[in-house]
Amino acid sequence: MLASLKPKVASILSDSAESVANRLQAVCTLLRDSVDYYDWVGFYFKNGDKEELKLGPYAGEPTDHTIIPFGKGICGQVALSNENFVVPDVTAQDNYIACSITVKSEIVIPLFKNGENIGQIDIDSNTPDPFTQEDERFLEFVNQKVSQIL
């Protein structure tokens, strides 16, 4: 099912008539609306020269976590590790920042531009342990396409 979204993601991101922010928003909305266990989808980006992430476009419930220090929570850990982080059960993570009591699992995939980790896509799910390697590969594809328009 995820593979069928690839052409839609590529089409949205290649629409240069739209702003980058609008294209990223459209991708977030597409993913949240198309994958039943993607309950919150958003991008975080490195905040200038600061050791923190700043919330970019997202689809889902509003979050108070608009700034995340490097090292804090799953997103902050990925900013330092440069590696995918799949959390099957958020309650088992000591360094987890709860966005909502309904969130059961999370996946965060770093976004690279010219070899530098400049941000990430973050997905929260209200379903326990739904993420597979297929999700990882698909979200890596999404980030690769996103990096081409940044």
Results as ranks from 00 to 15, higher is better:
Ser81Arg: 05
Gly60Leu: 11
Thr102Asn: 14
Lys54Ser: 15
Ile118Phe: 03
Trp40Asn: 02
Phe131Tyr: 14
Ser105Ala: 13
Asn126Leu: 09
Pro69Ile: 00
Lys104Leu: 10
Glu136His: 11
Tyr58Asp: 06
Asn114Leu: 10
Arg32Met: 07
Pro88Leu: 08
Lys46Asp: 00
Thr66Phe: 10
Asn22Phe: 06
Pro69Trp: 08
Gly115Leu: 05
Leu139Gln: 01
Val86Cys: 02
Glu106Asn: 04
Pro130Cys: 03
Leu53Gly: 03
Lys54Thr: 15
Ala21Phe: 11
Asp89Met: 08
Ala98Val: 14
Lys50Trp: 05
Leu5Ala: 06
Ile123Met: 02
Ser16Leu: 15
Gly48Ile: 03
Pro62Arg: 02
Ile67Ala: 02
Thr102Gly: 14
Ile149Gly: 04
Lys104Arg: 13
Phe131Glu: 07
Ser14Thr: 14
His65Gln: 10
Pro128Ile: 12
Asn82Cys: 13
Gln144Ala: 13
Tyr38Glu: 01
Ile97His: 09
Asp135Trp: 03
Tyr58Asn: 13
Gly115Trp: 01
Glu51Pro: 04
Arg23Ile: 07
Asn126Ile: 14
Asn82Ile: 08
Phe131Lys: 02
Leu13Thr: 01
Ser125Gly: 12
Pro57Ile: 11
Phe112Leu: 11
Val142Met: 09
Val35Leu: 09
Ala26Gly: 04
Phe112Pro: 07
Ile68Phe: 00
Glu140Asp: 09
Thr127His: 10
Ser11Pro: 05
Gln148Lys: 12
Val142Glu: 08
Ser14Leu: 12
Val35Pro: 10
Gly60Cys: 01
Asn47Tyr: 10
Val103Trp: 11
Glu51Thr: 14
Glu83Leu: 12
Asp33Leu: 12
Ser34Ile: 11
Ala17His: 13
Asn82Val: 07
Asn126Lys: 15
Asn22Cys: 03
Leu55Gly: 08
His65Tyr: 07
Tyr37Ile: 11
Pro128Glu: 15
Ala79Leu: 08
Val142Pro: 04
Thr127Trp: 10
Asp64Ser: 14
Asn84Gly: 05
Lys104Val: 11
Ser100Gly: 05
Tyr96Ser: 01
Thr91Glu: 15
Leu2Pro: 09
Phe141Arg: 03
Leu31His: 04
Ile67Trp: 01
Tyr58Cys: 10
Glu116Phe: 10
Glu140Gly: 09
Asp89Phe: 08
Thr63Met: 06
Thr29Lys: 13
Glu51Gly: 11
Lys145Leu: 12
Glu52Ala: 15
Arg32Cys: 00
Lys8Arg: 11
Ala79Asp: 06
Val87Asn: 04
Glu61Ser: 15
Asp33Thr: 12
Thr29Cys: 05
Tyr44Pro: 00
Leu55Ser: 10
Leu13Lys: 07
